[in-house]
């Protein structure tokens, strides 16, 4: 039981990080980026291919993360340009259609060029015992990285001037502009950050189990669930929702069977939405 909860926490932290990358983009511009998971998988492919070409794991991971940030920025400054000219529901809908198109293109290219690629990062240390539970070193390293990144994110958003500027755009874009914040610059920063988080997520995932090229869609759905349960645009909500869904995921995989886990996750998400329509921490009701 303890071991299952531990597994759930490890997974949940990673889900939280994945969710933050999607939720900040939504909160800031009303853009739901359905290509998010596919971009993260491109990072995994870059890491895997460059490691096979002889690069060390560290530099390979950094290269993958930078690639994801680059794709994310390109998406923001090309495909999404027409989206920013629209407002409200029009904007959300158009962003859904365009980014799902981008996701199909990326997934198609991956299947065509790298059909059997999968990223595995082998952390070759011995398992460690924590309060009687044997934890794989990969899980621990993944959790440590996720906690560190999560902590840095919270510090960034709460304590730095730039982080506050990002939150100001999420809460009231007109107010932010009147204070001298340039929303386009904030958007650029957030798209880069979103790519970086996707890249870090696949790297931590690969420390516990291989990431295949087909995982993009599943990552997007998971991020979407975390975002919706946590409240669109809420950063702390994403972390809390990630932890809850991670534990639900681990419990149902262990006690019921992994084939039905997705259904249980969706049911848990649906239940949250019924009880709290704007999510756990909806910034806007």
């Amino acid at each position: 039981m303890t071991a299952v909860i531990f597994d759930g926490l490890v997974l949940g932290l990673q889900f939280g990080l994945l969710g933050v990358g999607l939720t900040v983009v939504y909160g800031m511009g009303g853009i739901l980026n359905l290509a998010y998971g596919s971009i993260a998988v491109v990072a995994a492919v870059v890491m895997s291919v460059s490691m096979r070409a002889g690069l060390q794991a560290g530099p390979a991971v950094v290269l993958g993360i930078l690639t994801a940030a680059g794709i994310s920025l390109t998406l923001n400054s090309t495909v999404l340009k027409p989206v920013y000219r629209r407002r409200g529901e029009d904007r959300v809908l158009l962003s859904l259609l365009l980014t799902i198109g981008v996701a199909f293109i990326i997934d198609g290219l991956l299947v065509w060029r790298f059909p059997i690629e999968a990223l595995g990062l082998n952390v070759g240390w011995e398992p460690v015992s924590i309060i009687g539970v044997r934890m794989r070193a990969g899980s621990l390293l993944a959790s440590a990285i996720t906690l560190l990144v999560g902590g840095s994110l919270i510090f960034f958003f709460r304590a730095t001037t730039t982080g506050k500027a990002v939150r100001s755009v999420i809460q009231d874009e007109v107010g932010a502009r009147l204070c001298g914040v340039n929303p386009a610059a904030v958007r650029t920063l957030i798209f880069a950050l979103s790519g970086v988080l996707g890249g870090i997520f696949v790297a931590t995932q690969a420390m516990t189990s291989p990431v295949p090229i087909s995982a993009g869609f599943e990552f997007t759905i998971t991020a979407l669930l975390v975002t919706v349960v946590g409240g669109l645009g809420s950063i702390r909500g994403a972390f809390l929702a990630g932890l809850i869904l991670g534990i639900v995921n681990a419990m149902s995989s262990f006690y019921i069977g992994s084939y039905i886990t997705t259904i249980i996750l969706l049911a848990a998400a649906a239940l949250t939405i019924v009880l709290r329509p704007s999510g756990l921490f909806g910034e806007r009701a």
Binding site: K164, R167, S168, Q171, D172, G175, A176, C179, V181
Partner: peptide, 18 residues
């Protein structure tokens, strides 16, 4: 057009941005 979920101090700090 205040930032509703931010404190008074944070709203004031943003007034000084950048």
């Amino acid at each position: 057009h205040l930032f509703p979920e931010m404190s008074v101090a944070e709203n004031l700090a943003l007034g000084a941005f950048p």
